[in-house]
C-alpha cells in the first residue's frame, strides 16, 4: 500500500485520485503504524515550510519519514514535499528541514514573476524509472515561490527554465524522488509519473 502523509496541508485528495486514475491503491492519513507498514510514502503539500515542519513534528512523522527512507522505502515528495527534503529554507529561517537532500531552499529572485505559476517544461538531467515514457521538454504545472538548491548536482533529476533563470524542478537520491511541480494537475503526463511511482514501489508487474 502507498501511504499519502496527511499533515493538515490542504487538499490531498487530488494526489490520491491521481493514483486512483492509474489503478494504484493509495491511502491518505497520518497514522504512524500505517505509514510504517506502507510499501511507499508520498509527501505532498502546499503552504509554508516552517508550518509544515511543525505539523509533521506534532504528528510524530519526522523521525518516521527518516527511518523509512533509511530503510529503503520508495518516497515521493510533491511541491512543498520536495522542499521539506532539504536542510532548511529561506521561507522559514531557523527551521530545520528533513535534511534528506543536502542543500537549501531559496526564494525565487525578484527579477522573475513570483510565484512561478503555469505550465513549464522540464529538461531531463538523468535517467530515472520515474520518468519512464516522459519525453524531454515535457510540460508540467507549477505553482511556487521557492526552489530547492541541492548541494550536489548528482541529485538533480530535471531542471526548468523560467525567463533567464534555470532551477531544479525535480530531484532524486536513491529511493527518494521529488517534483517541484504538481503531476496531479498536469493531465496525462502527470498521471504517468504517479503510475511510474506505483511501478517503482511494486515492480513492473503491477
Amino acid at each position: 500500500m502507498i501511504y499519502i502523509l496527511d499533515y493538515g496541508s490542504g487538499n490531498l485528495r487530488s494526489v490520491q485520485k491521481a493514483f486512483e486514475a492509474v489503478d494504484v491503491v493509495a491511502e491518505v492519513g497520518a497514522d504512524p503504524s500505517r505509514a510504517r507498514s506502507a510499501d511507499g510514502l508520498v509527501l505532498p503539500g502546499v503552504g509554508a515550510f516552517g508550518h509544515a515542519m511543525a505539523e509533521l513534528d506534532g504528528r510524530g512523522l519526522i523521525d518516521l519519514i527518516k527511518e523509512r527512507i533509511g530503510a529503503g522505502v520508495p518516497f515521493l515528495g510533491v511541491c512543498l514535499g520536495l522542499q521539506l527534503l532539504f536542510e532548511d529554507s529561506e521561507e522559514s529561517p531557523g527551521v530545520q528541514g528533513l535534511g534528506i537532500v543536502p542543500g537549501r531552499v531559496t526564494r525565487l529572485p525578484d527579477r522573475v514573476k513570483v510565484p512561478h505559476m503555469g505550465w513549464n517544461q522540464i529538461e531531463i538531467m538523468q535517467d530515472s524509472p520515474l520518468l519512464d515514457g516522459v519525453p524531454d521538454h515535457s510540460a508540467f504545472y507549477f505553482v511556487h515561490g521557492f526552489v530547492g538548491v541541492p548541494t550536489f548536482p548528482a541529485y538533480v533529476l530535471t531542471t526548468t527554465d523560467y525567463d533567464d533563470l534555470t532551477f531544479v524542478s525535480s530531484i532524486q537520491r536513491e529511493n527518494v524522488a521529488a517534483f517541484q511541480f504538481h503531476p496531479e494537475k498536469s493531465s496525462e503526463l502527470g498521471l504517468k509519473l504517479y503510475r511510474n511511482f506505483g511501478r517503482w514501489v511494486y515492480g513492473r508487474g503491477r
Binding site: 503555469g118 505550465w119 513549464n120 517544461q121 510540460a139 527554465d161 525567463d163
Partner: peptide, 8 residues
C-alpha cells in the same frame, strides 16, 4: 520556458 495557455 513558461508556456502560453488555452483556457476553455
Amino acid at each position: 520556458m513558461l508556456l502560453k495557455r488555452i483556457i476553455p
